[in-house]
Design a protein around this nucleic acid. Structure first.
Lengths: 235, 235
DNA sequence: GTATGTGAATAGATTCACAGCT
DNA sequence: AGCTGTGAATCTATTCACATAC
């Protein structure tokens, strides 16, 4: 994707006229923008040039009012009576969502780390995995998805060389804090943690968490509850 | 925040002491219970018998008031001036979170599906993966993490035999809706979707979503934003 | 003194509903 | 007519603050 500052300024205009930085987009909206993006790319592929909030909502599994409010944070303007211009929307949401290619380092190449390093969706979304590190020396030197595994001690060097800006932690729980500390020492300030452990980071570091076991436990609760509610009925 | 369900019965009985079905635990609280559980198991291992909300909060990366309010929903009672009894808390949270072992079927054994089927955290959390299916015949018959892969056409049979109650979708995006429909036809009513696609389900089915690329995009936004804010860093 | 339990206050996200533009 | 843009209303979640109990 191209980065041009003229558009950046246009987006920033939302509420902050002079300072170059736009208002922060609500977390909940942010989480939906990539979904909208997928829908937009889909209809763009079909040659459609405008979408209504209703149509985009259907494609995204949300309601139309939410789409409109979300897009208002992005600073996009649609045309009343018509809808939104697909290409323009793709460009503008793309701008908001990092705009350019952002390389990623994964720490921990066990089952999960390997699966993540091969996950097509990352590179497709502009997040190529350019570095892999592990604490286990027997892993070092292996090639996974085209990337040679380095030792975790060389993390700083590898990050500097590849220019990675995002770090993914895919270690066991007991190694997670050390991994996170290492990433921060290497200059990474945005981290996605897959290890089932609570880790602490300084305030300036952005930490997100994906907790696979917890997801199942939440589902399990609902399943359980439903069974308790109607013990014999199968819809 | 993946699913909205309007459970008329549950809403109607806001304060039911012990008649039939009880608590509608808030979604946000539910998502934290497994985290508390991990902290509790940790301190229990150290022989500690009581915890304060403050201590549990520190272990879980949240604040103490939230812990207390959350625990009030699970119906637990602590002792003022002392704290909560660790064993009892573990037992009660365990009860809420499905209580018993809940087997899982994974549909799609590509990179991600294989990694998930080998993920220790699932079985440790009471969610053993007892069935694997795939649409690719060349995968059928393979043994992964001790489970033989079946063909997706046999999904109904496999689910019935293994008693799986939860389904995980780990297919490519274009196959996700078919996979979900298959799970529902097989009687599964609680689904965790890893495919980067919007899928629709009937209202009685609980659908949660884990979107890996989206997680990175959200991080990317924050990283991007931070760089725009202080442009003196790495180019 | 210490820590729970919970109403009340605050913040955040969703949905409604309608004025206003094309 | 059709559809956006957005204040206002609503629902959900978080945090505060303090009476209450040990």
């Amino acid at each position: 994707m191209t980065t041009d500052r003229t558009d950046a300024a246009a987006v920033a205009e939302a509420t902050t006229p002079e300072s170059g930085i736009a208002d922060p987009i609500p977390e909940a909206t942010l989480a939906r923008l990539p979904i909208y993006m997928r829908g937009l790319l889909e209809v763009a592929g079909d040659g459609v040039t405008t979408v209504s909030s209703r149509r985009l909502a259907d494609l995204s599994g949300v309601n139309a009012a939410k789409v409109r409010k979300d897009l208002s944070y992005v600073g996009t303007r649609g045309t009343r009576g018509v809808g939104y211009e697909v290409d323009r929307l793709i460009r503008e949401i793309g701008m908001v969502l990092s705009g350019e290619v952002t390389p990623v380092v994964i720490i921990g190449v066990g089952n999960l780390g390997r699966a993540l390093s091969r996950y097509d969706g990352f590179v497709a979304g502009g997040f190529p995995v350019l570095a892999l590190v592990d604490a286990d020396s027997s892993m070092v030197g292996r090639r996974i998805a085209g990337v040679i595994v380095s030792h975790v001690d060389d993390l700083g060097k590898v990050v500097a060389e590849t220019g990675c800006l995002l770090g993914i932690v895919a270690t066991p729980a007991h190694a997670a804090q050390v991994a996170v500390d290492g990433l921060i020492a290497a200059g990474i300030r945005s981290i996605l943690n897959f290890a089932p452990a609570v880790v602490s980071v300084p305030a300036e570091v952005e930490l997100r968490k994906v907790d696979l076991a917890t997801e199942l436990q939440i589902l399990g609760y609902h399943e359980h509850r439903r069974e308790a509610a109607n013990p014999q009925q199968v819809a």
